[in-house]
């Protein structure tokens, strides 16, 4: 009962914002201030979305994009975690590469694309490269910060109970770092998703949502462009809330930490 009410409380404001946006959009459309080719009505976009889902073009493109994203994200989680552990293990690595990685994070990942195209061509690999380089710095920094923020008291308690070396890390320090690390993965995921869309739009040699959107633009099919954008937002939000959000809430509830939102 309480759960259902609280879920309604969560959903209602979000739904209201979306409805308000659609209403304003419809009003602007009806004034006729913009050409209807440039700004289609919400209903037209809805129709295009349904048609594209029905004929399988959006599902196929979304599947291709998601597979690419999973591969790229998996690589950046592996690389980022290893780099983060290396930085925690060695002060020299942290001093030398740490600032480099912060610098890397301030460079928009799409700025790597021209170089990636020169190296790999207008293909899958170039896009994957951009996804990895866009998301692995935040995974690295999250690994480092989450380990740094482990309360010294827990480490001391573990040591006095007799845990040391690898065992201390495996049983005390890593588990204590999990909430911060998951937050970092969430951020890395968001970066990966954005980098993927940017990469697919430009280096669209392969099937994907970005490529589909590009094709729609070439056909001057504005409703389809907007329909794909809606899908991109929806996928991003579902993964963020349903996967990472749910995992984060579970950890925080179990440990009695504040649950956000």
């Amino acid at each position: 009962m309480w759960r259902a009410r609280s879920a309604a409380k969560q959903v209602w404001p979000r739904l209201a914002a979306v409805l308000a946006l659609v209403a304003v959009w419809q009003l602007v459309y009806q004034t006729g201030f913009f050409d209807h080719v440039v700004l289609p009505s919400p209903l037209q976009v809805w129709g295009s979305l349904r048609a594209n889902v029905a004929d399988g073009s959006i599902p196929r493109a979304a599947e291709a994009s998601l597979i690419r994203l999973l591969i790229g994200f998996a690589v950046s989680v592996a690389a980022g975690t290893l780099a983060g552990l290396a930085m925690v293990a060695s002060q020299f690595i942290e001093r030398s590469f740490g600032s480099l990685i912060i610098g890397l994070q301030s460079l928009p990942s799409i700025a790597w694309l021209p170089l990636a195209i020169l190296w790999f061509g207008l293909n899958e690999t170039a896009v994957l490269f951009v996804v990895v380089i866009g998301s692995f710095p935040s995974v690295t920094l999250a690994t480092v910060n989450s380990l740094r923020q482990v309360p010294p008291l827990l480490e001391r308690a573990g040591r006095t109970l007799g845990a040391k070396g690898w065992r201390l890390y495996r049983t005390v320090i890593f588990p204590a770092a999990v909430p911060g690390y998951v937050g970092g993965l969430q951020q890395g995921w968001a970066f990966a998703w954005r980098s993927l869309m940017a990469g697919e739009l430009i280096a669209s040699g392969a099937l994907g949502l970005g490529q589909l959107m590009n094709a729609s633009r070439e056909n001057l099919d504005t409703p389809e462009v907007l329909a794909v954008m809606v899908v991109i937002v929806a996928i991003g939000m579902i993964v963020d809330l349903a996967v990472f959000g749910a995992f984060d809430r579970r950890i925080r509830t179990r440990r009695g930490l504040a649950v956000a939102g």
Partner: peptide, 27 residues
């Protein structure tokens, strides 16, 4: 160095928050 022959009680309980009370003792 630290060792299980000397147990320490800190000012804070220093229980591991991801483990139940029983799991803390079992650990």
């Amino acid at each position: 160095g630290p060792g299980p022959d000397r147990a320490v009680l800190f000012q804070e309980p220093a229980l591991f928050p991801w483990m139940s009370v029983a799991a803390n003792v079992d650990f």
